[in-house]
Amino acid sequence: LMASWDRNTIILLDLVKQPENARCADCGAPDPDWASYKLGVFVCLNCSGTHRDLTDVSRVKSIRLDNWEDDLVEFMRRNGNAVAKAQYEKSVPAFYYRPQQHDCVVLRDQWIRAKYARQEFTGKNGHLQKAYSSGFCDGTLWKKGKNKRQFQKRRFVLSQDDFTLRYFIKEDSKVAKAIISVRNMNAVFQPEKVGHQNGLQITYMTEDRTRNLFVYHENGQEIVNWFNAVRAVRYAYLRKALAPANDSELMPLLTTRSLKEGYMEKTGPMQWEPFKRRWFVLCSVDRKLLYFKTPMDALELGAVFIGTEAHGFSVRETPTRGSRGSRWRYGLTMETPDRNFIFMCEQELEQRDWIKAFQQVIAQPLLPQHYSSKEERQYNCVIIHNKHISK
């Protein structure tokens, strides 16, 4: 019996080294050490948790720690991640977000449930895709009040007909409180920031300034449907706006995560103003550094467009002495053609991470969409910073 166990473990460890099995079938994490012996897939520890909840369709065991019977090992040998993918991911819409290793729980959980429990992508249950593929979404989400911490129920309507997201104060309101164009809208899961496991941050432009909405839905499937519905409408918009761009060019633009977020202290343009703590968000796709008073602010206080070294942009460490009024010791200076920005970080590691992130954006070549708006954005950022000089 012991020899059989050892032999089966060796076979499984050999199977999981094959290229198609060497990453988790659901999130792509390397070196999965769990497997579903009902589905024939190799998965990571995190994804195995969701599989464990789906007893009707999946049963998991540890490759290394559990005893595997011969017939189960043979089943794993005949199947594997590539076979399962061909079946369970046969008709995933181009815009549908496939979670990665470090994505939040609700995204990974709902992807696994959609694939195996609901079988949304096998070609048999296409009607289930209408919730996010139809180009129209109408429902209720909990939305954070602009100046309050509490969340209130609001009706949201997403429409591909005019590429807008509207929200209404009351269910039966005829006039929307806000009409948001999907042209420059972004949706990204932020459970820690929102304080709810299904928390979603929706960002958009209004009068050249960035505005945030923070929403959630109690039901994981509902909020992931909303997220993918936003991606679907953005996809339809970008296909029109950026024709003849192909899917590989459009996919990274559907939703974008910030490159780095966190607190730093900043001073004003004269560099003698007192340092104030602000929440900074750096986005590499649109090359912008935004800052807010707190992570949950609705409206940005300022924005800086970040060009390339050839356009006069650079970042470097700042000597700590002489930083007026800053409680924090680890400084960095970002040079732009208009002015130098001095920021202070609390920890040396943070300072290094910010410098590295800025360098990454500066090193990226400018794309056509950046050239068309670069001068305008630089002008706007000067106006914004002058207007909010004391903020």
Rank of each mutant, 00 (worst) to 15 (best):
A3D: 10
R7H: 10
I11C: 10
I11W: 07
L12W: 15
D14T: 10
D14Q: 09
A22E: 14
A29D: 06
L39G: 04
S48Q: 14
T50E: 01
L54I: 14
S58A: 09
V60D: 08
D71Y: 09
L72K: 13
G80E: 07
K85L: 01
Q87E: 13
Q87N: 13
E89F: 03
K90D: 07
P93L: 03
P99T: 08
Q100K: 13
Q100M: 04
H102M: 12
W111N: 15
W111L: 09
W111I: 14
Y116N: 06
T122F: 00
H127I: 14
K130R: 11
Y132S: 11
Y132N: 07
S133K: 08
G135I: 02
G135C: 04
G139Y: 02
T140M: 10
K144W: 00
K146W: 01
K146V: 00
K153D: 06
R154S: 04
Q160I: 07
R166D: 13
A178H: 03
R183S: 09
R183M: 08
I202W: 01
T206F: 06
E207S: 10
R211E: 12
H217I: 05
H217S: 11
G220P: 03
Q221P: 02
I223M: 08
W226N: 07
N228R: 01
N228P: 00
Y235H: 12
A236V: 03
A243M: 03
A245S: 02
D247C: 13
L250Y: 15
L250E: 13
M251S: 15
P252V: 08
E265D: 09
K266W: 14
Q271M: 00
W279H: 13
L282T: 11
V285N: 11
K288L: 15
T294R: 08
D297A: 15
L301P: 03
G302S: 11
G302D: 12
V304H: 15
I306A: 06
I306E: 05
I306R: 05
A310Q: 13
F313T: 05
V315G: 05
R316M: 12
T318Y: 12
S326M: 08
R327P: 01
R329F: 04
M334Y: 09
M344W: 03
W354C: 08
Q360A: 12
V361S: 01
I362T: 02
A363M: 14
S372P: 02
N380V: 01
I383C: 12
I384K: 11
